[in-house]
Design a binder for these strands. Structure first.
Lengths: 138, 138
DNA sequence: AAATAGTTAATAATGATTCTAAATTGTATG
DNA sequence: CATACAATTTAGAATCATTATTAACTATTT
């Protein structure tokens, strides 16, 4: 479990000032045993439980977007009223449980390799995301 | 190009009353030469241009969701402030041009077959969507 | 033609996200 | 260490897509 000093270094390296708020958010996101998926409101709740400090919602949004730009997080494409983020930034895909509104990792060994044969002139591929929607059988 | 009588039949078969509004929306969506992608606000504009009748935004939303449930349309998973729909309901995938905020079809012959090897106990796969984000090279 | 159940429409409400401007804080410099 | 300045935080307002509300309207059944 990284110490706050490591997060300070990490933030500095990314040209993000290591503020109390950013360090706290790093702790909540990156001290976990496993990577996980979250929405901003999930995260706000986690901070509240975990925190001896209150972080403004605007700051949570700012910070998460800053972290996403720096590659600390990935945003996951699903149609939902809320945006989901993933602390697992490795190349992988997702199941989305329609009933639980919950994401589940689909690692690359869980599917045949994706190979895009078509290309768009003048454009380069930035990402390839597979979303497998699942639901209870009925 | 189907006539309005065909849309009336189509709607009746789906247990949707063939109202003026629904027929008009069918015309705008399904009289096009090619399938296309749209947002609700795109569609509202198309109706306005095309129409001798005004359709309430609430009705546009209701109708599009009704059509989606009946399988006339597919909703496409992307993270965007607006939801995208596709009049192409066949099994296929998408590019998303980050610059133009535009979807482009990626037919099944444009990529190697998708084969999901992992499964989620108690759940069945409802859909598999591949989203390839592209942008100008820079 | 009347009854009724489904549909439409205008508008209000909601909820996630972004914006704003003022207060605060981190950091570089003297 | 004190100061200056730019970056950051904050609370709350604003935005915008979408959904809810409910009264008026319409398609269909009897």
């Amino acid at each position: 479990m990284p110490s706050s000093i490591e997060y300070i270094e990490k933030l500095r390296k990314s040209n993000l000032r290591p503020t109390k708020q950013r360090i706290k958010i790093c702790e909540v996101l990156f001290n976990a045993d496993k990577t996980f998926h979250f929405t901003i409101s999930d995260l706000a709740k986690m901070i509240e439980v975990n925190a001896n400090q209150k972080i403004s919602l605007a700051t949570v949004y700012n910070t998460i977007h800053a972290f996403e730009k720096k590659g600390y997080l990935k945003e996951i494409a699903i149609n939902s009223s809320q945006t989901y983020f993933d602390t697992n930034t490795s190349n992988h895909h997702h199941f989305f449980d329609e009933k639980e509104k919950e994401l589940i990792d689909l690692e690359n060994d869980g599917l045949d390799p994706i190979n895009i044969k078509k290309n768009i002139p003048g454009k380069i591929i930035k990402s390839v995301e597979v979303l497998v929607k699942v639901d209870v059988d009925k």
